[in-house]
Structure formats: structure tokens, C-alpha cells
Nucleic acid binder design. Structure first.
Lengths: 371, 371
DNA sequence: TCAATGTTTTGAATCGATCCAAGTCAACAT
DNA sequence: ATGTTGACTTGGATCGATTCAAAACATTGA
């Protein structure tokens, strides 16, 4: 239980010590470790022996770093707690993509986050990385600002900022939302409800149409716009569609559903802006004995793996999460001073949570109306 | 698409440049950023203004690092690809614990891994961290060796090495396995089969009792020992229990099950050394139409979250994964030169995959035999 | 034997900060 | 006018390596 408790304090064996012990200059000693082939064998062995004897474990990266300038690691930052990276389904899949790209290029990953704001600032400022990938959720703008100050290449993931000077990587939210609503409309639905994400930091509850125009993150506004477009196409007045702002959590989503289903004409189709919210909705509906997709259809947004396992499996708009991670890494490693804003395509994944509304099968089809 | 493409090459604004521009020494400039309170306000403002003008984003951590010596990040290493941290259930839960502890202390996390062996060595050697937590799976001994060479504090997680000079954090495998087998024996089972992990790197197939004695990782041997102990207690000859070495994957586990169930007296109780293997077994049994727990009971080892969701939910020996992660971080941050080897307690979690064997309910109970 | 050539090794400069002992300066007391 | 004190500032040393031009040495050919 107490091995090697020698060496009163630190273990300050430097390359210089080894060099002295071996009777060579530090230049040569350095070469022994980083470019052994240019050192004469005899000398090489002598230095290695000296290193061995002194217990020198190879060049300290701290020193090398300063000289080389490159850390060979990319930072992934978020304002959520660190465990977000391992718990959140969306983050996990994106991280897989990031991992893959880093593995391929031999770069490491540094996770940066913090409990409080001050810590965050410090952590971002002092992270030893060559660039940042920023997960923009709540507090995103502050995080981006902090990151930008570092002056390192970085890309903001997922949520859109309109600022053109920020490199970003996201999906076409308008197109994705349109796809979702069209799918439902195509099945014959006419009574929609929207489970939205935040328009303002921390706010929740029913939302007026006006407020949807400029959300904190443009992605949220864009999704509303996409939904509306397709809803209008289907001949329904978008302003009649109830929208409820959730915090992407259980409590506010439950409140939203209670709000929707307390109405006179409850929706037959629910458009959720995240799979998480959609899955909560599925649970709530099951608990209420409302059958999905027979009585109500639900479509999510994101395409997290959990959606495959739900009962029924969730129809959703899948973001190319792995691809996003991969691209983000590539953008950073290949950064050339150019700000890139890439938009990736989303895909409609039809699973079991959407179907034609029951009314359809009871009454005669009303196809004609839908033009 | 092409903002700020100025500045032909790098952006080498150093603290010294700011100092010069502001007409103060670099010492003072440094103080402005790290201990602003000791600098006269007028000077402070002047320096800040100069920094602003030059586009200096605060002290570069690279420089600070070398001086300070502390990186304020702990490394988590594995020989698996990086995505292991985000995909593997066991790793993910442990990482949650690590995250929590790091969040609390403000430390960052650096993930270290690599596709090939050479890369791994390089990555471990050059990771900028204050210490390592090592996930010892395959190639564990090599990984530990590499890590040890760095001369930084580290703790090996999960799989036991007998080497007392290595700090390790694990569970009492003997006790856990005993608990598992006793549970099954207590339910009345007498025909067991063991789904084992590797005894040697990469080997698989039926295993003789002798070979179980000294596995690559002592944890594997210990689990066999624990199983045997409880099996013997139940009056069954342990040497008659079939053991099949799997690679903790689907192919070899399936082979194992086919082997077990091709026997004349197939087992009624399966002892799996990992939940992963146990879950694969559950699937295989369901596909074969063998009812769990009516015809066969299955018990896992680990306690991954997925076990709760399987059909039926998996009875298992739960390791305190979150606690392991937390402790590992604490051990590293509080490292004082003492090698600690901690053993945490496991817990039997009874869920739906184990029950009394069917023979019990058909024939008269044979309790008397069990002494 | 000398020049030319090729191979190793040396040692100073550098990377970007922090630390600290010594120095400056103004204000106040004697 | 001188001494004391306290508040800032300064500049050199340091952290641990890498790099590179120049020096040292070895080898070869004439």
C-alpha cells in the first residue's frame, strides 16, 4: 500500500539532466527521442541508458508543446455539465462522429465544460486545444463569444446563429420541418400542434405566432417556418395551430400536452422539435390511453437512436449526426482562415408513430380538400 | 463565405507585444491578466486597451502551462477506439462518474486512444494531462505499461492486475460471482453454464477448468472462482459446469450458447460475466423460443442501464460504476505518491431474468439435496 | 597532405508565459 | 533635507523542450 514513496518531492528529471549524465548536449539528447535515426548508434545507446538510469520517461509534452505550437487535440465545449456528452443521445451520436474523425487523424479530444459561468470562461480560455467544436444549447451565444475570443478555429454545431462571421455546421431546419409537416399532411392530418423548443432563454408556455419569428436560436424559428409552410400548403391556417414552448424536458412537455388535449378539437398530429420531446409525448399519450398512431400521430426531430426502441418506434426527421461530428473535426483541422457555414441534409425516417388519422378511415377520404 | 481572410499567416500577438504597445514590461502586462488587482488602474486600462487593439485574446495557455506545471485535466485512456467512450454502456456510466467529479473540481477531461499501437504509444506519451484513468480491456497490460512510463499518477479501472505497484480501482470479483451463483443456486438451480470473458487475448471456445486458474486479467479468474465456490456450496461439482470463453461479442456468445444447448443436459442457469453477453444470451434464447426465466435463468455482471430495458429485465451483479469513476478522479487529483488499490462492493440486482427452475415446480422440490 | 565532402554534434535562440528579487517613485514623518 | 514606508514596476531567470546554423569530426580522392 505504500510502494515507491521515496523522492521527497517532485521528479524533476529533465532532458537536460539526461544529456549531462550522458555527456552530450541537450540538442543531441533531444534528437535521440524525436529523430533517433540521425544520431550515431553508440551515442544513442549511451543517452538511452542514461535516461533509463535516471528514470526519465521521455520528453515532457509540456515542453514540446510550447515549441511546436500544436496540441494535437480538439476541444468540444458546451455549457451543460460534462456528463452531457455521455448521457444525451444527440450529443453521443455526434461525439461518435467526432471520435471517428479524431481517431482517423490521430487527434485527441478534450471535453470542456463547467458548472458555473466563471469556471466556463476560465476553462475555455485555458483549454489546451487546437480548435473548438461548440455545442450550442442554452447559453450558446455566450459560449460562442468566449470561444471566439480564444482566436482559435472553431465551429458551432447544430443551432443556427445568423452571424455570418461564425463558422457553423447545421441542418436545413426549414426543409426538415417542412418535410415533417408534409408527411403528416400527406397522411391526411389537418389538426396539428407544435411542441416547440425555447424561443427565449428559459421561457415556456403557449406561444403566439408573432413570437415565433425571431427565436434565440434561428433554428427554432426556422422549424416553425417550415411547419407553417407545409401546413399552409395543406390548406390549413397556420395561425390556428397551437404552439407550446417547452424546455425540452418532461415537465414542460407534459404541460404542453395537457394544454393541447384540453382543447375542444385536440390535435391528431403532433410536430415535435426534438425526439426527446416526442418520446415524452409518446409516453404521455400511452399513459392517457391515447393510441399512437391510431388516434394521434407524433413526429420528432433529430433521429436519436432511442427513437428506434420506443413503443411505437418514432417517425422523425433525422439529422446526419455522425456526419456532423466528422465534418466539424475536418473543418477545424483543415482550417485555412475561411469561415465556412455548411448545411447538411436531413432525412424523413418513417417508423410507427405516424399514420393516417382515424377520422380518415371512418369518414370518406377528403383528399380533394388538400389542394 | 470568406470573412477575415486577412493576416497572411499566423496571428502571433504575444503578451510581450501587448506590453510593448502599452509601454510597460511584460511582467506588468502578465499581472494585468492574472492578478489585475495589483496593477494601478490607469496602467491596467492602458494595457487592456493595447490588448484590444492588437487583438490579443488573453494569455496563451501554452505558455502558462509550462510555467505552472499543472494542466488541470485528467486523461482517460483505452486501447479501444475513441468512440468506445460514447458507445459502450459500461464506459458511459463510468464516464458519468468521472464527469461529475471533474465538474466539481473544475478539471477537464482528455480522451486518449488510438487506432493502432504505435499511435497509442505516441498519444499516451504526449497527452497533456495531470494523470490518467486507464480502462483496461484488451491490450490492457501494454496500456498500463505505457501509462506507467509517463510517470504521472494513474489508476487502472475495472480489471485486476496482480501487480501491487499499480494503483487500481475495482470490485471484488470473487464476491460478486459468488453472489450471482448463490442467487441461482438458492432458487434451486443445479445445472449451470458459464459464459466467460477471455482468459487469453483473443482466444475463445470451451475452456477446461485448469485454464481458468490464471487468466490474462485476474478478474476473470476471480469470477470463475466465485462461481465455483457457490456452486460447490450448493452440492454441485464445479468441474462438471461447462465454461465457454467468449470475446464479449455476439458471434462467440452465440457459439457458446449453441454449445451449451447441444448438450444432453442443457443448463437451467446461465452465469454471464458481463451484461453484454447476458443480453445477447437473452436474445438468443428468445429467438430459440426458450423462455426466460421459466425454462432458463440468466444472470449478468456489470449492471449496465440496458439491463433494465431488456425483455425480461436482466438480473445482474451491479458494479458501482458511477462511484468508480468518481473515486478514480479523486485518487488522481489527491495523489500523494501512495499506490492505492481500492475494492468497491458489488450488489445483486434481482430483476426478471432469474427464477426457480421449471423442474422445481413440476417435480417435488428437492431442497434436501442441496446441503 | 590537403581539399572536398559528408556525417554528427554542439550551443545559442526560441516558444509564451509566470515569478520574484530588486528597483523606482511618491507621500508622509521626522 | 532625509529617512521610511508602501505601492507599483521592472527585467532577468525559469519552465522543458525543439530547431538550426555553425563547428567538429570522419572519410575519401587526388
Amino acid at each position: 500500500m505504500d510502494t515507491k514513496a521515496r523522492e521527497p518531492k517532485t521528479r524533476p528529471v529533465r532532458l537536460a539532466d539526461v544529456a549531462k549524465a550522458a555527456g552530450v548536449s541537450h540538442g543531441t539528447a533531444s534528437n535521440v527521442f524525436s529523430r533517433p535515426e540521425i544520431v550515431r548508434e553508440e551515442v544513442r545507446e549511451r543517452v538511452k541508458a542514461a535516461a533509463e538510469k535516471l528514470g526519465y520517461g521521455g520528453p515532457d509534452p509540456k515542453g514540446r508543446l510550447l515549441r511546436a505550437g500544436k496540441v494535437n487535440a480538439i476541444g468540444v465545449a458546451t455549457a451543460e455539465p460534462l456528463s452531457y456528452f455521455f448521457d444525451d443521445p444527440f450529443a453521443r451520436v455526434v461525439m461518435s462522429g467526432i471520435s471517428e474523425a479524431c481517431d482517423r487523424t490521430g487527434a485527441g479530444i478534450s471535453l470542456v465544460s463547467a458548472a458555473n459561468d466563471e469556471q466556463l470562461a476560465w476553462n475555455i480560455r485555458s483549454a489546451l486545444v487546437d480548435g473548438f467544436i461548440v455545442f450550442c444549447l442554452e447559453g450558446g451565444s455566450r459560449l460562442v463569444e468566449l470561444t471566439r475570443e480564444r482566436g482559435l478555429p472553431f465551429v458551432a454545431l447544430d443551432f443556427g446563429f445568423d452571424d455570418e462571421t461564425i463558422a457553423a455546421l447545421g441542418v436545413d431546419d426549414v426543409a426538415g420541418a417542412r418535410l415533417a409537416a408534409r408527411h403528416l399532411a400527406g397522411l391526411g392530418h389537418r389538426r396539428f400542434a407544435i411542441l416547440s423548443l425555447e424561443f427565449e432563454e428559459g421561457s415556456h408556455g403557449p406561444v403566439s405566432v408573432e413570437r415565433t419569428q425571431n427565436a434565440l436560436y434561428s433554428g427554432t424559428s426556422d422549424r416553425v417556418a417550415g411547419y407553417f409552410e407545409a401546413i399552409a400548403e395543406a390548406g390549413v391556417d397556420p395561425t390556428s395551430v397551437p404552439i407550446y414552448e417547452t424546455l425540452n424536458d418532461k415537465a414542460t412537455t407534459t404541460a404542453a400536452l395537457e394544454y393541447f388535449f384540453a382543447a375542444e378539437n385536440p390535435p391528431t398530429a403532433i410536430l415535435a422539435m426534438s425526439d426527446k420531446v416526442a418520446l415524452i409525448a409518446l409516453e404521455w399519450l400511452a399513459a392517457r390511453g391515447i393510441s399512437v398512431p391510431d388516434e394521434v400521430s407524433v413526429i420528432g426531430f433529430d433521429g436519436v437512436p432511442e427513437g428506434k426502441l420506443s413503443e411505437p418506434p418514432l417517425t422523425t426527421i433525422a439529422q446526419p449526426m455522425v456526419e456532423m461530428g466528422r465534418r466539424a473535426v475536418e473543418n477545424i483541422l483543415a482550417f485555412d482562415g475561411t469561415i465556412r457555414r455548411e448545411t447538411l441534409d436531413v432525412e424523413l425516417v418513417v417508423r410507427g408513430s405516424t399514420a393516417a388519422p382515424r377520422s380518415q378511415s371512418l369518414r370518406p377520404p377528403v383528399r380533394a380538400t388538400s389542394s
